[in-house]
Write a protein that binds this DNA or RNA. Structure first.
Lengths: 264, 264
DNA sequence: ACTCTCTGTTCCGGTGAGTGGAAAATTTAC
DNA sequence: GTAAATTTTCCACTCACCGGAACAGAGAGT
């Protein structure tokens, strides 16, 4: 919350303690651009005193959650990878969807993304990119906004009302995102998405790109994930994107059919 | 505490405590066939009293390491998936290797596996299976023996001596694994693998299958992972497997070239 | 060579977070 | 309907955890 001015460090300063919280504060000190941290940095980024950091880090190494890299820095360990592989909404979902995603990728020749919603953000579960080309910077396990990307809009459209309101209220117009310019535009879009059962969005600003996305449901009909095709286009051609809609929707339905009862 | 003769439970009873250890005892209670556990089972499998389990589980839910599924049971949460995605030897390695693995899979038409060594076992990091067919039961994040599978032998051949000795000493002949019948056979195999820089192994027992594997090295030349092609064969035909050797070896070298300095 | 700085490490007494028994609330079985 | 199993709250004890301070080691600069 109150994140003060603070020189350079300063983090989610954990006021009240709890050993487990602190341990996860260490693990949360890592991000895309900080995958290997020396003790000092780990301490700064987690907001813990040096000795406490050392003690906890050693415990976590012992448990396999952290490891030492060649330079002696701390990195996230494979032990955590092993445990996380059992997450139903993570690799569990991926396992079901993967073969279908491969088919879709081969047919369309574009990026195929699988996302779920976590709070007011989307988390990328799996990403298949056509052969060598990798212009997409989205990273597996990374977070994405709900209000811009194709898959995000799907997840938002079927999210609980309070989440939708939260996102719509704080919506700020994005460059090159002509179709939606305000929170009310967004609300209308979401209603349209629920109506259609898919979304085809375009954007011109960072690059010319388009996305087609459809919901994946569990056996009770609840939306648990979003499948999307993302492509970079030279021009704002609707025809190409629209042609993808049936493929994406049917693939999403095929995956839904495979979702075992009670996967969350 | 005295957990009686016990019907089915029994665990790696953690003698003296440590909150973080207990928290991970909860997370370690999950495995392939136990992905969703009610509190009671979680308590039994982790060896902790019910109330302690509840308190810890709630903390972990708060931190995103655990979640509730539709039935109210506890499952591994996406929060853990997000953190684990930053493991250099996990998704970090996968990210580098994936495009090459896809090429190899497309050319050969067989299963492509990527493994690393963790102690005296192998951990499956990524697996690509040809289209629909999925006869392979190996699960991403799962553990595999070092002494039988193709990739495992590579990892063992380049493992520290104490690990090699440990595995060789405790080696017991496997059905249908003609080439290696004793610890000494295994030692000879490992020497041959180091000599050749690859392994081509066959097995006839559970099924007729063959594997070709090669090491992936970091910039210092240390072996950090194993790339393998696994195929089921109707007969013990050497020609088919041997034809794969150059493809696997060169692909492994190509991946090695991409390994950034100091990935572990 | 010396010092100065920065990082990693050990030591240790005080204390509050964590513990588990017991009992209440809740759900499930019968 | 009762009974059993599971989940949850309560609470006083105590030991695991905390963090300041002091130490050790690695560079870097003069």
């Amino acid at each position: 919350m109150a994140t003060m001015p603070l020189p350079v460090d300063a983090q989610p300063i954990d006021k009240r303690s709890g050993v487990v919280q602190r341990a996860f504060a260490l693990l949360s000190a890592y991000d895309e651009s900080h995958v290997a941290l020396p003790l000092r940095t780990l301490a700064r980024r987690s907001g813990l005193p040096a000795n406490t950091t050392l003690r906890l880090a050693r415990t976590l190494v012992e448990l396999g959650a952290l490891e030492h890299d060649a330079e002696g820095r701390y990195v996230i360990g494979v032990g955590l990878f092993e445990i996380a592989a059992l997450a139903p909404r993570g690799h569990g979902l991926r396992r079901l969807a993967m073969p279908f995603m491969e088919d879709l990728g081969r047919v369309t020749g574009h990026h195929i993304l699988l996302k779920i919603r976590e709070g007011a953000e989307a988390v990328l579960i799996e990403r298949l990119s056509p052969h060598g080309s990798e212009p997409l910077s989205f990273r597996i396990g990374g977070r994405l906004p709900l209000d811009s990307t194709g898959g995000g809009l799907i997840l938002l459209a079927y999210a609980p009302n309070d989440i939708q309101e939260e996102v719509c209220r704080s919506f700020t117009p994005l460059p090159g995102y002509e179709a939606v310019q305000s929170g009310d535009d967004l609300r209308r879009s979401l209603a349209a998405i629920r109506q259609d059962g898919f979304v085809a969005a375009r954007r011109s600003s960072p690059w010319f790109c388009a996305a087609v996305a459809a919901p994946i449901r569990d056996d009770s009909g609840a939306v648990i994930a979003a499948l999307s095709v993302e492509l970079r286009t030279d021009r704002l051609d609707n025809a190409e994107a629209n042609a993808l809609v049936p493929a994406v929707v049917t693939t999403a339905r095929a995956i839904s059919r495979r979702v075992s009862p009670g996967l969350l």
